[in-house]
């Protein structure tokens, strides 16, 4: 085999299964929470993070000593760089469930691994194709898995506080990465553990997430419909939610009016988004809604009118959670 062909097959064997696994994850995403473009951007970020890590690692290698840094320094740098994109996605409410967090995380890790494997190709191929497949593929899956862990833990624990959850996710990922780099297991055992252990873990996460998504959609749809019914009957101000709204008399009357409108528009949009999601899930075409654009613009107007303080005050009766925000972002992105 020529060196060029060996490089080609080496890289293919090392990275192709990682992208195949990424594709499998996307196929498991029955609610189509993640769009292909999002995956491509995440892979791109992973590649950039990989390049940045190569530069940083080279400098820090010299400063701290290769042995110590490889085991205890590099995992911090690499996991932190990969996690940046997940922090951005979670902060921007572009990721709200375990499934999308896992897919976007794994995609970042796949991009990172692609760059890293290209950089270390020559070095690892010197040890033979078997070592390459073990180290190249195993490390690539580890990078994907560790980044996915950041997203999954950050979403899973977000009720404890968004930043705390993200730090916890990063800590777990650094821990996994450090164990990998310390060589606690032999390369074969480590690769087998990752390759055989990760798919069932993902299937479990996806099943749990899908159940949670079904429950949330059902409960929230009921809430939206109930709120809309209360508003349309004209008796809203006599309900407990209406009494609460009237008690907010520190706000100007026109702001209180716009709070009522915000309840109406956000419930309408929320119900419409769930309708779209259910149709998509059932494989039906998404029905065109001519009023949707206008409602989204009206929502922007109302949020500005009510202001940050108003939105906080409205929170007990307008639970616009990160999932609801994500849903609205999705609705806007699909237009």
């Amino acid at each position: 085999m020529t060196p060029a062909l060996a490089r080609f097959w080496g890289l293919t064997a090392g990275i192709l299964p990682v992208f195949a696994f990424l594709l499998a994850l996307k196929l498991l995403d029955t609610f189509r929470l993640v769009r292909p473009r999002q995956i491509a951007v995440a892979v791109g970020w992973g590649g950039l993070a990989g390049l940045a890590a190569l530069g940083l690692n080279a400098g820090l290698f010299e400063a701290t000593g290769p042995q110590w840094y490889a085991k205890f320094g590099a995992p911090w740098v690499e996991e932190a760089l990969k996690a940046i994109w997940l922090v951005v996605l979670i902060r921007a409410e572009r990721v709200a469930f375990l499934v999308d967090a896992a897919i976007c995380g794994f995609a970042v890790g796949a991009g990172f691994a692609l760059v890293e494997n290209l950089a270390y190709l020559e070095q690892l191929l010197g040890g033979g194709i078997a070592l390459w497949v073990l180290r190249g593929f195993g490390t690539a899956v580890m990078h994907g898995g560790a980044a996915a862990i950041v997203g999954v833990v950050a979403i899973g624990l977000r009720r404890s506080g968004r930043w705390l959850a993200m730090v916890a996710g990063l800590a777990v990922a650094i821990g996994v990465h450090t164990l990998w780099d310390m060589g606690v297991l032999t390369p074969l055992a480590a690769s087998l553990t990752v390759v055989l252990g990760l798919p069932p873990l993902f299937v479990l996460i996806f099943e749990r997430s899908e159940k949670a998504l079904h429950t949330w959609m059902g409960q929230k749809l009921n809430q939206d419909v109930e709120l809309l019914e209360m508003l349309t009957t004209g008796n809203f101000l006599e309900t407990p939610a209406g009494s609460y709204l009237r008690s907010l008399n520190a706000f100007a009357p026109e702001v209180l009016g716009d709070m009522v409108c915000l309840l109406q528009v956000s419930s309408e949009l929320s119900a419409a988004a769930k309708g779209e999601r259910i149709r998509q899930w059932a494989g039906l075409p998404v029905a065109a809604d001519s009023e949707l654009e206008a409602k989204l613009r009206e929502l922007e107007f109302l949020e500005k009118s009510v202001g940050l303080a108003g939105l906080h005050a409205l929170a007990p009766i307008l639970p616009l959670s990160s999932r609801d925000r994500w849903e609205l972002q999705e609705l806007q992105a699909r237009r």
């Binding site: 508003l231 349309t232 004209g234 809203f236 101000l237 209406g242 009357p253 026109e254 009016g257 009522v260």
Partner: peptide, 14 residues
């Protein structure tokens, strides 16, 4: 005026 329109007119005191 009825429904949510009436509610908005009431709460804005107009």
């Amino acid at each position: 005026a009825s429904g949510v329109v009436l509610t908005v007119l009431q709460i804005t005191r107009v």
